[in-house]
Design a protein around this nucleic acid. Structure first.
Lengths: 345, 345
DNA sequence: ACGAACAGTTGAATCGTTTCATTGTTACGA
DNA sequence: TCGTAACAATGAAACGATTCAACTGTTCGT
């Protein structure tokens, strides 16, 4: 088992000093053509590969950015992660990905891990209250940008989407197509995004005197959780059913839809209109193409990296909070009764 | 900007030698209770966090496993990644994730990156022919396990699913419900998994004298690619249409389904039966719940880590090739005309 | 012919941890 | 009292890359 070659081995092989090899790698202009060629040949012959740990040790930090998301299984985050990775790659950094799964201790473990790895900076969609920890990190020169959450104090930059507005758009749309007995599916309400979307929905419902909003607390945000809620709904007598349902995300909505359509007695959207949130790819191809609230995931990921880079480059920046506005996407699951609203792609 | 504390600072603060601090961290039993307490107090006071780069440098390798997949946006891989991460975490390793996006140069970049990071081992679902590079890695003590691909020589361990058999199952099922003019959607055929699934389908079709199989080459494996193929299909005169379609994965199938159902003239499964591959979560809640071929993603991810661990622990193992068998899942998109086959969850 | 200016090259010091041979301390039986 | 375990703690030497002040030639102007 031959140990991998080090810069020293390359220097020997090429008959130069280690400093010269390092210069060939990092400042090629400082080295003469002849020497460069010999060194490069030696590198090739020995199959030398830089040891990143040694570089980092010397540099005091890695060229890595930590990213902690709530759920990689959720296409919203998958898409966000992709955009962040691409943006980071452009500026020469790699992304370390952590999936907290809405779990505070997993989240905390990832922060520990990333701290040990000496990441340059951190993007996080937080579960628990990590402000204190993040402050410590910042004091040590590791800036953080909050993702999919508005920074409440002026301590951090953040990239978020106006979830209150999104909730309003969704509920307002249900009201606009004539629904009055609305239900909100999502939970637990301790999840920031869920609470905001609900608040927005409540705001819309207050605008119509005869409208009501029932809250159905779900266990998480998965297709499965949605199916549970749906199964509970179909057992109700028809008159107790809502006529418009707003789900806190598309996975939940798809789950609810499965349950409702399994019984062939309920029709979507005639009996119950259904709208989700996130506009994931799969919503278009659902049993009934799902209306949804679209968030600009790529822009979020890209912007997050940009804000982080700003903080990395200038020592003393004012923190910025970028808030995107979500957008209503109407498809068949809420096709209005009054007009033949065409399904949109 | 106060530099983060090092083990040396901790040693000073606690009034002990650096070696002792290291022992507290790594071999608590070797240190007396009193000293341990003082050191731990110092660690806490200074907010000391181990520098992983330094550990790695000393150790000569990281506690990290590289994983390169073809497409993180594909739920098949998302699920596989999750299982691998969990299995790795159990044995104290972290997973570095790379998404090659079916692109050879991105794949190559990730191998470079992981090599610089001195990963312990590598799991890869390869795009190009990377055998040579992987051999070099192995000679340097970095074992590789191939994922979702059978190792053709005895040089590597591998975890795969019998794609030929899966293709056979899918096509055989279409034949069994009486379809004869079959079409296969997938591409490019240079993708190993696609080619194998097609071959299996062809094998099944040969068993029925009057059956034919048309191959529709798609640009990639996304929902969008499926929609393209679907749009081309609906323009054909009805008599030229296939009566059974097998798609190389569920994303494609969902795309095709979207196009076909957009025209309200074609019915699934009456006019065209449709089956996909992977059995992703979203297939259940498709317009018409999608029949599919299920692969044991969690088992694949877990097994890959296990095989890698085997190679890491014993120097000279015989390489193993684990092959899982896929499973047919029948839903409404291929509900047979002869019997009311009930949609399954 | 001398020194200045400059481009190339050198190699020791550094980063923070782990390892391990060595030293110091205590306890106990002979 | 001495010898010897057994146990704790020490601190110097790695690991591999980068940095930078110092050094060596070479060229050029006077």
């Amino acid at each position: 088992m031959n140990r991998t070659a080090s810069i020293k081995d390359v220097a020997n092989q090429a008959g130069v000093a280690v400093g010269t090899v390092s210069n060939v790698l990092n400042y090629p202009d400082r080295v003469s053509q002849r020497t460069k060629e010999r060194v490069l040949k030696a590198i090739d012959d020995l199959g030398f590969v830089r040891n990143d740990a040694a570089r980092q040790l010397r540099a005091g930090h890695s060229r890595t950015i930590g990213l902690i998301v709530l759920d990689v299984g959720n296409p919203f985050f998958t898409s966000l992660v992709r955009a962040a990775e691409d943006a980071a790659a452009l500026q020469g950094s790699a992304v370390l990905l952590g999936d907290s799964g809405h779990n505070e201790s997993r989240e905390s473990n990832y922060i520990d891990l990333f701290q040990e790895q000496r990441v340059q900076g951190l993007l996080i969609s937080p579960v628990g209250d990590v402000t204190a920890r993040l402050n410590v990190l910042r004091e040590r020169g590791v800036p953080t940008v909050l993702v999919d959450r508005l920074a409440d104090d002026a301590m951090f930059s953040s990239v978020s989407v106006d979830d209150d507005e999104g909730g309003y758009l969704a509920a307002r749309h249900l009201l606009d197509i004539g629904r009055r007995r609305l239900a909100f599916v999502g939970g637990p309400l301790s999840i920031h995004q869920v609470a905001d979307r609900l608040r927005g929905a409540q705001r819309a419902v207050k605008e119509e005197a005869d409208a009501t909003l029932e809250v159905l607390d779900s266990e998480g945000q998965s297709v499965l959780a949605g199916r549970c809620i749906g199964n509970r709904l179909v057992e109700r007598p028809a008159k107790n059913l809502p006529d418009g349902i707003f789900c806190a995300n598309d996975l939940l909505a798809l789950g609810v839809m499965q349950s409702l359509t399994m019984m062939h007695t309920l029709r979507i959207p005639e009996d119950i209109a259904l709208i989700g949130y996130d506009d994931i790819d799969f919503s278009v191809s659902a049993v009934v193409p799902l209306s949804s609230i679209r968030q600009p995931t790529e822009a979020i990921g890209r912007t997050a990296i940009e804000l982080l880079t700003e903080e990395l480059e200038s020592q003393q920046v004012r923190h910025r909070a970028v808030v995107f506005t979500p957008e209503l996407v109407v498809r068949q699951s809420t096709a209005g009764s009054e007009a033949g609203v065409k399904a949109s792609l």
